[in-house]
Write a protein that binds this DNA or RNA. Structure first.
Lengths: 217, 217
DNA sequence: TTAAAAAAAGCTGATTTCACCCTATGCAGA
DNA sequence: TCTGCATAGGGTGAAATCAGCTTTTTTTAA
């Protein structure tokens, strides 16, 4: 019946995906899509105009305000709203990162629609939804009992800026100039990021950053 | 009326996107989605089971068989079927590349649904659909009258394999070992690809390959 | 079968990147 | 006040990467 429907919102920067998903979910008759938004900032702007959603489907990499920040904002300002992360990648970092930011579940865009509907219903009723993908990561996290990337998203604004400039044909020297910093300082950033991402080359860094949905190309 | 509907198929490896889009387009009442497929090989398998589509919406980067190959196969085996490329990027290379492969149009996944419906109807009736994105590229192609990347997709299997291995933490030496080639030969590939992509570093190469939808991470 | 083209392998040197070493400053908490 | 920590800056040397050119082998086409 109408009143039992789960009210959701969708935040993703690809219009066709977002609107397509809205139609797909609406057809399930168990979900009501209140609104959709292009990115976190857009969502914050639209939020007051609608009833508070039960669940928000959240993309991670988006322009202006990404999924990590937006989820943290939601938990600070509307702790009752549940967040279900939607991503293309199944790396440790974005999964743990989104959960730590406050998401109650993590689904791949390669999922089947029925599984997504289940996840939305689960998260609406229990505030979390642990699928195999997530439980596997959590289990390994415990079994290895080393903290296993539980704080890998801690990038300061300068490091993030550097990371973005890394994804280009620019040399480190050129990046240093663009950021008005000494090449040595840039080298510190490089060093720090190599350790955080456990990579040995700039290329590895770029690939990791993309898979961890920290940057967008 | 029913019989005027445009029959289409959707080929894309992200299930939620593909199915969402199918629902979205079905609602327009002008489009009938016959079937969808995970990649080119899957499409070829499913094609005989349905009436021949008027238009096929084609993603570019897909596992097993990508959009370029699949479009070429369609033009060779079912020249009457129109292909509309769907991509996240607006680089020259994939646009020109898909058009050369035989696509009749090119749309971004950031497009609005109404624009996509227009493109589908246009391509169904005229076999092509030239939006601003495509016409701009074509115009520049003529104005600069240098061939402007009209043959940038010409990678042999070894180069493609090398390109994929480049998107990692591996050193060139390790790549040479994995491909059972001398590091010097690898250096030749690197040199050739740097020229084709007009880049000066391995990082630039990786970013270009991703934007040109030649590889998938 | 011979010439041309392409692929593979090689060399050298300049530049960039990588890995470790260090110091100084400012700020928060014990 | 002292300590720890994060940020910023600096230096050195080894390794990897980049750029350009040459040679050999294989394939293709005339």
């Amino acid at each position: 019946m109408q009143t039992d429907k789960v009210n959701i919102a969708i935040v993703d920067d690809h219009t066709l995906f977002r609107q397509g998903l809205a139609h797909l979910l609406t057809e399930s008759n168990e979900i009501n899509v209140l609104f959709d938004a292009d990115n976190g900032a857009d969502m914050i702007k639209k939020l007051p105009a609608y009833p508070l959603p039960d669940v928000i489907l959240m993309d991670i990499t988006m322009p202006v305000m990404n999924g990590y920040e937006t989820t943290k904002w939601l938990k600070a300002n509307h702790p009752g709203v549940n967040v279900l992360a939607l991503s293309m990648f199944e790396e440790d970092t974005p999964i743990i990162g989104m959960l730590k930011s406050g998401a109650g579940g993590y689904m791949l865009k390669q999922s089947k629609a029925a599984d997504l509907v289940n996840a939305i219903k689960g998260i609406a009723s229990q505030s979390f939804y642990i699928n195999e993908l997530v439980s596997g990561k959590l289990l390994r996290n415990i079994q290895n009992n080393q903290p296993l990337k539980n704080a890998p998203i801690g990038l300061n604004p300068n490091e993030l800026k550097f990371l973005e400039l890394c994804c280009s044909d620019l040399t480190y020297k050129q990046i240093a100039d663009m950021m008005n910093l000494s090449p040595h300082t840039i080298d510190n950033y490089r060093e720090a990021l190599f350790q955080k991402f456990e990579v040995k080359s700039r290329t590895g860094l770029v690939i990791s950053a993309l898979k961890n949905e920290l940057i967008k190309i």
